[in-house]
Design a protein around this nucleic acid. Structure first.
Lengths: 245, 245
DNA sequence: TGCTGTTGATTGTATATACAAGAGCTTCAG
DNA sequence: CTGAAGCTCTTGTATATACAATCAACAGCA
């Protein structure tokens, strides 16, 4: 795997990439059927065991699920990534600028996901501003933040610090969350997170959520995703109450 | 997998169990060679692809590692699980009793692991008491606790609640940790955790550590492992400062 | 001694084939 | 109309075979 010197790209890898790209581009939506083993055989001119291996590995990676006697299907985005759907937009807007130890890699407008709508008191599919920020600590990517901003609260938002907090300040800001929010969960990283945090697909991550408020109401909602192993050193995750407002 | 009704136990599974049992019992120590694919073919009277599948899956599970041209070897216990070494003892002592919503599934004495020695102020390989506790919430396994108890502090330990705290109380007790401890990390579950929390190998877990103290010093050290998905409902992880001492 | 090439063992990839098991559908008898 | 039987497609397991790629060890030569 690590010694892949373009010697002889395996056929099953090509099939995997084909299937993954179809899902990634949205051509094959959630829970839709993917070609059966035999169909892949004829499409790619390979034996069934080779086609099978591609489907098998994608299943182990959580991209597909299969049922004997029925077929293979695209797993839900929830099990893959909430960010997968916007990945195609992101590649164009990388590296917008540097602010302290953080980097804004994406800034766009999106229809509001359900979770965010609830958190910000908006309606589903109302427009929200979406930004993606990588936080660094001594040149090492430490945390990926997906931030949704309430457009109705932009004036208040601009008064807040944007990307100027250190990662430690971000983490210590978690405490004043309301009970309705997820506090922390463990997830497998999506491709986006892998890319920016420079980790493997199999390395579990920590995800925290944070809401900020002003007198006018909820201003922003953010997912803060960190590589689990980056926090095994003592002191990083020194959560303490931090009620400033 | 879940519909294993003893219909037709696959041959590759039998080979996997054989290899795993050899490692578990210590017959095949770390980094020792395991039989090659062809050797397993003749030993078990199967084809190479079947023997290969057994080795392959054990490699994916972190039990073995393989090198082309060389062979297959037993992975270090560190990459498997710190609990693997005592798994053979555990099966006998399951379901000792029920205390509220927790179940003590193992109780034994062990040489002190390095991490625990540091946490409790003991020397490496000093004897410690080890207990394994499954916490339930409404019949659903919620958390697996691996608790190491300082034998020198047993009197103080017996004064503390044993398995009578609710999972929520356990989590809220995290706050008074010293900075030297890991607070929270995301890990992939070992076989033990899979078994007791009824989750898949691929579902990432949250792991917290907790130390308890008395006037005499550190009393116990525990790993608290929870299925990540179990805590996505609001309110479970309501961490707040809880300095009772 | 030191280097090179060969050889054998082992794992990686791939094909062709076969049968079992599960799920959905059609057909047909009652 | 209903239920049972059968058909077909799908995935799961298994075999036999072949070649490629990698590594260790050995033999032979300078």
């Amino acid at each position: 795997m690590q010694n892949n010197q373009e010697r002889n790209p395996p056929k099953f890898a090509a099939i995997k990439e084909f299937i993954f790209s179809q899902i990634e581009s949205g051509s094959w939506p959630e829970h839709s059927r993917v070609p059966s083993e035999n169909e892949l055989c004829t499409q790619f001119g390979v034996s069934r065991m080779t086609a099978r291996r591609a489907l098998q590995e994608l299943t182990e990676q959580g991209v597909l699920y299969r049922t004997q006697g029925v077929g293979s299907f695209v797993a839900s985005a929830k099990s893959q990534s909430a960010l997968l759907e916007i990945r195609n937009i992101a590649d164009d807007i990388q590296a917008r600028g540097h602010f302290h130890s953080a980097e804004l890699v994406q800034l766009t407008e999106l229809p509001c996901p359900a979770v965010v709508a609830t958190a910000l008191g908006l309606n589903r599919n109302d427009p929200v501003f979406f930004s993606l920020i990588v936080h660094y600590d001594n040149q090492q990517p430490l945390q990926l933040e997906a931030r949704y901003v309430n457009p109705q609260q932009i004036p208040d938002y601009l008064k807040q610090d944007f990307v100027q907090q250190t990662p430690h300040e971000y983490l210590s800001a978690v405490a004043p969350l309301t009970e309705a929010d997820h506090l922390v969960e463990a997830v497998l990283p999506d491709d986006f997170t892998c890319k920016y945090l420079k980790i493997q697909k199999t390395e579990p991550c920590l995800r925290l959520t944070r809401r900020t408020f002003s007198r006018g109401g909820a201003v922003s909602f953010a997912y803060l995703t960190s590589a689990g192993s980056r926090y095994r050193l003592g002191g990083h995750l020194n959560i303490k109450p931090n009620h400033k407002n």
